[in-house]
């Protein structure tokens, strides 16, 4: 089973990398970009029997830092 974990910074947590990307886009002449937030995508190939609880556990214990980040799990159809 292919699983995609999307890790993003929580709202309210300043994102210096997102801000730098934003400035770079403006520098390239792109207009109308209101905000940029950078995150991380982690693709897992796991046994089909892997439970949702186990996936949650992986995210909480390692893949995301719950102090500053949120995560979302997407399973490939």
């Amino acid at each position: 089973m292919k699983v995609r974990v999307i890790v993003t910074l929580k709202n309210g947590v300043l994102d210096p990398q997102g801000r730098a990307i934003h400035h770079a886009l403006e520098g390239l002449g792109f207009e109308g970009v209101n905000d940029v937030r950078a995150g991380r995508v982690i693709e897992l190939d796991v046994a089909d029997s892997t439970s949702d609880e186990a996936l949650d556990d992986m995210c909480r214990k390692l893949l995301a830092n719950m102090v500053i980040e949120n995560y979302r799990i997407e399973k490939a159809a």
Binding site: V13, L14, P16, Q17, A20, N65, V67, I68
Partner: peptide, 17 residues
């Protein structure tokens, strides 16, 4: 130490990049 949960908070990328 913060990642191990022995201290509160987290250390993020420097604000000035």
């Amino acid at each position: 130490l913060t990642e191990a949960g022995l201290l509160p908070g987290a250390l993020m990328r420097n604000a000035g990049i």
